[in-house]
């Protein structure tokens, strides 16, 4: 069930946890929360003890971010199946497989020699180990720079280390020029990044939030991020914080737009709404830690420049 993207998943987990708390008081509804995240392992070892094949030729990716990485590394031809949410690149062999509610037998039918996942849901690693299938777990990184090692690790594991290194160099160069393109005003511009219409947001302790930090923005969600990196804010707090920039990462999932935001009660007083500095982004690109994430970086930098040059 649910969605792929890490933050969607986290938000969904937060929602699920809250839903479970609520629903158990109402009725006996059981919702399985995701399994705990596993620690990163060294690049050359698999995550589940099965030795990595020297040259994997039948890769299954159940993570949209890793699918992006594999194709950017030049390992696309070795990928036989990707999950339903691996939207990019367009020519990836999408299937009905799910990384959130994985079906071991359905995965095994593709006879993979390597399975890449973002979370060890339902003990998938162990189940695939029983079938002697190597697994790599590539979870959502806590920092923006954490994107690069995964790109490199997947390149190494698939025999494309050089191309992966080139992809990383290209990404780093583009990010550096985007960071240099903004003035980083003092006092900093403020930003609110919206994950859904119930005001779930991201703190600076995430690879998404770090984009704002790197561009010199102050994130209004940080004050609310007590023990959670994906806090739920209140409408009143957002209006009172009066952000200069609103980033809508809920355009695809939840149909939000400048129009729906401006129509919310009280929101027309927010600077970002008054000045039309409401940036609509593609939810999928804005939540996957793959090479396309630079596009999100570019969009935010563009919006910041627009405000600075006014």
């Amino acid at each position: 069930m649910i969605t792929i993207h890490a933050r969607h998943k986290r938000r969904a987990q937060a929602l699920l946890a809250a839903a479970v708390a609520l629903l158990t008081t109402l009725a006996g509804v059981h919702v399985a929360a995701g399994a705990p995240r596993t620690a990163r392992r060294p690049a050359r070892a698999s995550s589940n003890g099965v030795p990595l094949p020297a040259d994997p030729t039948r890769i299954v990716s159940l993570s949209g971010s890793s699918t992006q990485d594999l194709f950017a590394d030049g390992a696309g031809k070795q990928v036989v199946a990707v999950d339903e949410y691996s939207t990019y690149p367009k020519n990836a062999p999408r299937t009905k497989l799910s990384g959130f509610d994985p079906n071991v037998e359905a995965i095994a039918k593709y006879k993979p020699d390597l399975v890449v996942i973002s979370d060890n849901v339902d003990n998938l690693e162990q189940h695939l180990a029983a079938l002697h299938i190597a697994v790599l777990v590539e979870p959502a990184p806590p920092t923006f720079n954490g994107i690069y090692p995964q790109l490199l690790a997947l390149g190494q594991a698939t025999g494309h280390a050089a191309q992966a290194a080139a992809a990383v160099t290209g990404m780093k160069r583009e990010v550096a020029s985007l960071v240099a393109s903004v003035k980083q005003e003092k006092p900093p511009l403020t930003v609110y990044d919206e994950l859904d219409q119930t005001y779930y947001s991201v703190s600076s302790e995430t690879f998404i939030g770090q984009v704002f930090t790197m561009l010199g923005l102050k994130n209004i969600a940080d004050a609310a991020a007590k023990g959670t990196t994906y806090p739920q804010l209140s409408s009143e707090y957002i209006v009172a914080s009066n952000p200069d920039l609103i980033v809508l990462s809920d355009t695809l999932c939840c149909g939000q737009s400048y129009k729906t935001v401006a129509a919310r009660p009280g929101w027309s007083t927010i600077a970002a709404v008054k000045n039309h500095d409401v940036l609509t982004v593609n939810d999928t690109i804005a939540s996957q830690w793959g090479p396309l994430f630079v596009d999100f970086f570019k969009q935010v930098a563009g919006a910041v420049r627009k405000i600075e040059h006014r």
């Binding site: 809250a18 629903l23 219409q197």
Partner: peptide, 19 residues
């Protein structure tokens, strides 16, 4: 499955979106 999030947002709606 992409509806799950919207459904839970509705179930947990509460009063935060009151107009």
């Amino acid at each position: 499955s992409d509806t799950l999030q919207q459904v839970y947002a509705w179930i947990l709606g509460g009063l935060s979106g009151a107009t």
